[in-house]
Computed example of a mutant assay.
Amino acid sequence: MMDSQHIGKPEQVDARTVTGGHFRYFDFMMAAFVTILLLSNVIGAGKVAEVDLPVIGVQPFGAGILFFPISYVLGDVLTEVYGYARARRCIWAGFGAMLFMAFMSWVVVAMPPAHDWTNQAAYEAVFGQVPRIVFASIVAFWAGEFVNSYVLARMKVWTGGRMLWTRTIGSTIFGEGVDSLIFYPLAFLGVWEPWLVVQVLVTNWTLKVMWEVVLTPVTYIVVGFLKRREGVDVFDNDTNFTPFRTQV
Rank of each mutant, 00 (worst) to 15 (best):
M2G: 13
Q5L: 14
Q12W: 00
D14K: 12
A15P: 00
A15K: 01
R16D: 15
R16A: 14
T17E: 15
T19M: 08
T19V: 04
F23Q: 05
F23T: 02
R24I: 06
F28Q: 06
M30N: 10
A31E: 02
F33Q: 03
T35N: 05
T35V: 11
I36D: 10
L39Q: 04
N41L: 11
I43P: 01
G44R: 03
G44N: 05
A45R: 06
A49W: 12
A49L: 10
D52L: 07
V55W: 08
G57K: 03
Q59A: 12
A63D: 07
G64E: 02
F67L: 15
F67M: 12
S71V: 14
V73I: 12
E80V: 00
E80W: 01
Y84P: 04
A85Y: 03
R86V: 05
A87L: 03
R89K: 15
C90M: 14
C90G: 14
W92I: 04
G94K: 05
A97T: 00
M98P: 01
L99D: 03
L99A: 11
L99P: 02
A102H: 02
A102Q: 06
F103C: 07
W106L: 07
P112G: 11
P113V: 08
A114C: 01
D116G: 01
T118Y: 14
N119V: 04
N119R: 08
Q120L: 10
A121L: 11
A122G: 15
Y123M: 11
A125R: 08
A125M: 09
F127Q: 08
F127T: 04
G128I: 04
G128N: 10
V130S: 15
V130D: 15
V130E: 15
I133D: 05
I133S: 09
I133R: 09
S137L: 07
V147Y: 04
V147I: 12
V151F: 10
L152H: 05
R154H: 04
R154C: 05
M155Q: 13
M155H: 02
K156M: 12
K156E: 13
V157D: 03
W158C: 11
W158N: 11
G161L: 06
T172G: 14
F174V: 08
G175E: 07
S180I: 02
S180E: 10
L181N: 05
P185V: 06
L186E: 05
L189M: 13
P194F: 14
W195C: 00
W195N: 08
L196Y: 07
V198S: 09
Q199L: 09
V202D: 10
L207D: 04
V209T: 08
V213M: 13
V213H: 07
T216K: 02
T216E: 15
V218Q: 06
V223Q: 07
L226C: 04
R228D: 01
R229T: 07
G231F: 10
G231W: 11
G231T: 08
T239S: 13
F241V: 00
F241Y: 14
P243M: 03
R245E: 13
Q247N: 13
